[in-house]
Design a protein around this nucleic acid. Structure first.
Lengths: 128, 128
DNA sequence: TTCATTGCAAAGTTTTTGCATCTTT
DNA sequence: AAAGATGCAAAAACTTTGCAATGAA
């Protein structure tokens, strides 16, 4: 399955896609910007926004909108999972367990095809 | 349970809270602004933003983020519920049943304080 | 060499803040 | 009268866009 990112494969696009793929949870544009700007490399904010849009329309990443209203992006190839949002530090991480068992695919007369769960609380690090 | 809105009860705060409470669904800041500015009354945008924050921190309203990424607000007194988003007609409805039983208030080392679930599928009307 | 892509800076949007004035208590 | 709340306008924050320079093919 060839991954096509725009019409040309550039260093910036590779880096941005890698950052999103390797993150422990969905990342915001600000988080991508910080990760993309190190001593060795530097990517402009406009490129980040443009690349995120490009990756979205190529279905290589997908957006996750949590109840905090902040848009975040994650690799589109991930298995079914949910998200945990720390009320203290704001970090969002993936939760691979799914405690919902939809034997019942119907709720209140509606046919359920999928679901998204966001947990809120205090993360492992903030509890310490 | 007395409802305290800030330290003073003002007309603006009453109006904004009423708009949110009486709306048929969660409303955005823009929608509140439009509803609050009629021939008879006029409320500034800064007051809307300030009041929404105040109502949120007083837990009189809560924010809901629909798949369009826009932040919306609803009365917090609605019982614990979730949302169903119809993939066909786009309508969002409340789901009053909660099939999640968090006997376990810890997941992957994180302390769980609350959760939100969004179901996606085909609504009752679209199935007909 | 060609032309898509980048980075900067300017322009749009959205949200917050400072401050003088107004209103609640 | 005192102190919180409002409205305006300015400022800050967040996104998008134009354009000359750059770099992938």
């Amino acid at each position: 399955m060839p991954k096509k990112i725009g019409q040309r494969k550039t260093q910036q696009r590779e880096i941005i896609f890698e950052i999103i793929k390797n993150a422990p949870g969905p990342v915001s544009v600000q988080e991508i910007l910080e990760a993309a700007n190190t001593d060795e490399q530097s990517i402009g904010i406009a490129t980040i926004y443009r690349t995120v849009k490009l990756l979205l329309s190529s279905h290589l990443i997908q957006s996750v909108t949590l109840p905090d209203g902040q848009a975040r992006y994650e690799n589109a190839e991930l298995a079914h999972h949910h998200h945990f949002h720390c009320n203290k530090c704001g970090v969002v991480t993936d939760i691979n367990e799914c405690c919902m068992h939809l034997h019942d695919n119907e709720v209140a007369g509606n046919l359920i095809e999928s679901h998204e769960i966001t947990f809120f609380g205090v993360c492992k690090a903030c509890r310490a």
